[in-house]
């Protein structure tokens, strides 16, 4: 993904990615940690709707994704355990970068978001795959938002 294609992204997400792109590896990790600490808690009314997070065996971090829909705009909330700060950081980037966007804006996000962030040099391939899975999941939710009546969709990933 080139810097040019950042123009298809929602402005806040493009801004975050640009900041990552300009940082050295150490700076990227520091940024990711800052994001991890800024992940918003799941609002109670959404959490009440959620089932038990799906616990995947082995080392997969259980991630729960909640979508809130209001007047055609989406917000995403994530349940990620505190002992998985890398995933929390990534979730917070998506949360802030996709705050009040439309479903179509979500669907336009390129799959190789991570290469623009320069994360491939600091994260292992399997972790990047985990991040790709979260993005793919959000896109499925956005597709649902286009077809289903407005509601909150808590889902387990």
């Amino acid at each position: 993904m080139s810097i040019d294609s950042l123009s298809v992204l929602p402005p806040r997400l493009a801004e975050i990615l640009e900041t990552f792109g300009l940082s050295d590896p150490q700076g990227k990790m520091e940024l990711l940690l800052e994001f991890a600490e800024s992940l918003l808690p799941i609002p109670e009314e959404l959490a009440d709707l959620a089932g038990q997070p799906e616990l995947v065996p082995e080392c997969m971090t259980p991630v729960t994704v909640y979508m809130h829909q209001h007047e055609g705009r989406l917000r995403f909330y994530f349940g990620v355990p505190p002992e998985a700060p890398t995933i929390r950081g990534y979730a917070a980037i998506l949360q802030q970068g996709l705050w009040d966007v439309t479903p179509n804006e979500v669907l336009q996000i390129p799959e190789d978001l991570y290469s623009a962030m320069g994360l491939l040099h600091i994260l292992t391939p399997q972790r990047v795959n985990g991040l790709i899975a979260i993005l793919a999941h959000i896109k499925r939710l956005a597709t649902q938002a286009l077809t289903l009546p407005p509601a909150s969709h808590p889902t387990n990933l």
Partner: peptide, 22 residues
Amino acid sequence: NEDPLLYETGHIPGAVKVDWFT
């Protein structure tokens, strides 16, 4: 750790970090 940021969120006093990947 498996998570490359976990040490930075807090570690045992005096401990250093190795990341298995980097």
